[in-house]
């Protein structure tokens, strides 16, 4: 379980996350909201790229914010990015191995762990291919393989389906759904594709202007009037 309490981030006069309180359980959790709602900033806080001015993040009993960023990866934090960041000049195998060897995975089982992660995302035949030679969907899957290798405890997926066609997104959804069962990790999915969120997430939280405006079972949240208003805007009398 991850528990976020009174989390606040300020960039000068801008407050992208304002006194955020949220508790999430193991499984795939959706975090949705309009652009600028603070979703990626929230991920950046968890990853260690952004330091909050106040608040705590307790994940599986550990104070996440007290760890330097590289220690968070060893602890079990994994992250993908809106603009995918798999290393183009390295092979698929090397990309996944890099995460494993820097996250403290056991040396004796490294090869098996890397191959398992790559096969899990369906890229077993591309182990030795440079990531720069792969298509966009495959590069996204490499990022997911990097996220699930070893012993992840908290997996953050930042718009993994951005730019993918429907059939690729459907395949990605199957992989994302299986992450908790395979790894036992608490997974947080940020995406604007509501079909993907609906397909993969049991629970959803909605962020708007740095506040959680709704949280709960996916179907309930997606039909919440406040959520629809945040996404689609409210009718106003002119």
């Amino acid at each position: 379980m991850i528990s976020i309490s009174s989390l606040t981030v300020r960039f000068g006069g801008v407050v992208p996350i304002d006194d955020l309180n949220l508790t999430l359980d193991v499984g795939v959790n959706g975090l949705i909201g309009p652009n600028g709602a603070g979703k990626t900033t929230f991920f950046n806080v968890l990853t260690g790229f952004v330091k909050p001015v106040q608040g705590t993040v307790t994940a599986f009993g550990d104070d996440l914010l007290a760890m330097p960023h590289f220690r968070r990866i060893r602890w079990g934090l994994r992250r993908t990015f809106q603009t995918e960041q798999a290393v183009a000049e390295l092979t698929v195998l090397e990309n996944v191995l890099t995460v494993l060897e820097h996250s403290g995975g056991a040396k004796s089982s490294r090869r098996r762990d890397v191959v398992d992660a790559v096969e899990f995302v369906g890229l077993g035949d591309s182990l030795q291919r440079p990531v720069g030679a792969l298509g966009a969907a495959e590069r996204r899957l490499v990022e997911v393989a990097r996220a699930v290798v070893g012993s992840p405890r908290l997996v953050l997926l930042d718009e993994p389906a951005a730019g993918l066609p429907d059939e690729e997104t459907a395949a990605l959804a199957q992989v994302i759904k299986e992450i908790p069962a395979r790894t036992g990790a608490l997974t947080i999915l940020v995406d604007h594709d509501m079909a993907l969120v609906n397909e993969t997430c049991a629970h959803v939280a909605v962020l708007d202007f740095g506040h959680i405006i709704a949280s709960g079972p996916t179907a309930d949240v997606l039909n919440d009037a406040r959520v629809m208003a945040a996404y689609l805007g409210e009718d106003i009398d002119v």
């Binding site: 990853t47 790229f49 590289f70 990866i73 960041q85 183009a88 090397e94 890099t98 990097r146």
Partner: peptide, 21 residues
């Protein structure tokens, strides 16, 4: 070498891989 390749692509890439930059 793999840590350096990650650093060369982007510092966030290296950090997200757990590299002590």
């Amino acid at each position: 070498g793999r840590a350096w390749a990650s650093l060369r692509q982007a510092e966030v890439t290296a950090i997200s891989a757990g590299v002590n930059t």
